[in-house]
Nucleic acid binder design. Structure first.
Lengths: 222, 222
DNA sequence: GAAAATATTTAGACTACCTTAAAAATATAT
DNA sequence: ATATATTTTTAAGGTAGTCTAAATATTTTC
């Protein structure tokens, strides 16, 4: 059975390989876990006979199917706990990450199954991220960033790319949450920001960066 | 901030001192934590400058008010999680101890406050044990063991002394749970067992030991 | 393709917690 | 009050995980 530290290594490798076409290097893992590259090398060596990943000196590391299974299990647990914290305990979406980070390490398939049922088998977490099923399969959703909407089009917010607290709190201030409707009033050429109408009520300018981080689906589309 | 191991030591000391008039000895702590007496001495020495307890070589250990606060906090967290597991996730009362043992170590006052509210501020856990409030105060209840009921008296089950799985599962078989009514039909002199009527339905003989472990209040009493 | 920059690994040491075996202190029994 | 039994502590060492500093590999640059 994997220790909490081991689980965190597997999760870090999973997240990095998701972005960096399949392989994770020592420095990236160290940065992700706020530890030193030396510790990572050490840990990879000690963990490498547990079959979660392939590791070759100086060549980086990639997960085996066993490692991927553990990682998606962790993602599943994390996101289900986030749903619990927001839907049942009334936490806000910017407060739940660290708690879910602890809760996800409680290892009981029965617990997660019962939690899933209790929550009504949710498909997405409070940030709009898909929750993998018990087999590790994700529901894929049609989504684009707010950037790709044309003038006069309206998007319904279905997710956020970044999860850090300041960004989510900024969205709180703008009254933007999952389900909010954002209509593009105009593109501002100069800095690629967008003038928008939020929830049919408030006009606002959203920076290019904010737009990149908002996932929407076109209103009245499928 | 106390580590999980530290918390478990404090909790063990608390439980032992509850029974053994105020002080816990090395062997008892070791037995309680399934570790060696040498480890306990080692840990007590290392922990003793954190002000959770007073420790004098060969004299045993007793908690300070800081230690008692931490211990009752842990009891509170443990019992609230047990309520959650039984009331919300539909676990049975014999399945929740180990999971609560893990969940109790998640340190967030906010989490526990919100969990408490979500559960409706319960005063007792699924085994009938009182849940201390945030200040560590327990609700005291009028209760006696089934042993002290006379013939023809009826008791309502409000708690169990032992929490181990086989005992609780035996009670499941007998259809005895919190709230069950048990009427004493006769005392059997030979082995001090009791012939009883459970829930107005089933007649059964309960051993002396089972009776000692069942807390009841007299039906129609306060 | 050599030099410089960067990434990675090794070496040695630290902490928290655990272990067994032996020594010392305390408690019990005669 | 001494001998015996029990409890507790010390000593020495192990594992998981961490660190810094130094050594080595790889990549980038010219």
């Amino acid at each position: 059975m994997a220790s909490i530290t081991e689980e965190n290594y597997i999760k870090a490798i999973y997240k990095i390989t998701e972005k960096n076409q399949g392989s994770a290097n020592t420095n990236a893992i160290a940065a992700h876990l706020s530890t030193s590259p030396a510790s990572v090398t050490d840990m990879l060596k000690r963990l490498s006979d547990k079959d979660y990943f392939h590791y070759e000196k100086y060549k980086g590391v990639y997960l085996t199917s066993k490692g991927i299974k553990l990682a998606t299990d962790l993602v599943r647990r994390h996101r289900l706990w986030e749903v619990f914290l927001v839907d049942k305990l009334n936490f806000s979406w910017d407060e739940v990450h660290d708690l879910a980070e602890e809760l996800e390490h409680i290892k009981s398939d029965d617990l997660i199954m019962k939690l899933d049922n209790f929550l009504g088998n949710p498909k997405y977490d409070p940030h709009g991220d898909p929750i993998p099923n018990a087999d590790g399969k994700f529901t894929i959703r049609n989504q684009v960033t707010l950037l790709s909407l044309a003038k006069e089009e309206t998007g319904v917010v279905v997710g956020v790319r970044e999860h850090d607290t300041p960004f989510l709190q900024y969205l709180n201030e703008l009254k933007i949450n999952l389900g909010s409707e954002i209509k593009i009033l105009s593109h501002i050429e100069f800095d690629h920001s967008r003038k928008v109408l939020i929830n049919d009520e408030i006009e606002h300018v959203l920076s290019h960066k904010v737009c990149t981080n908002l996932f929407v689906k076109l209103k009245n589309h499928k």
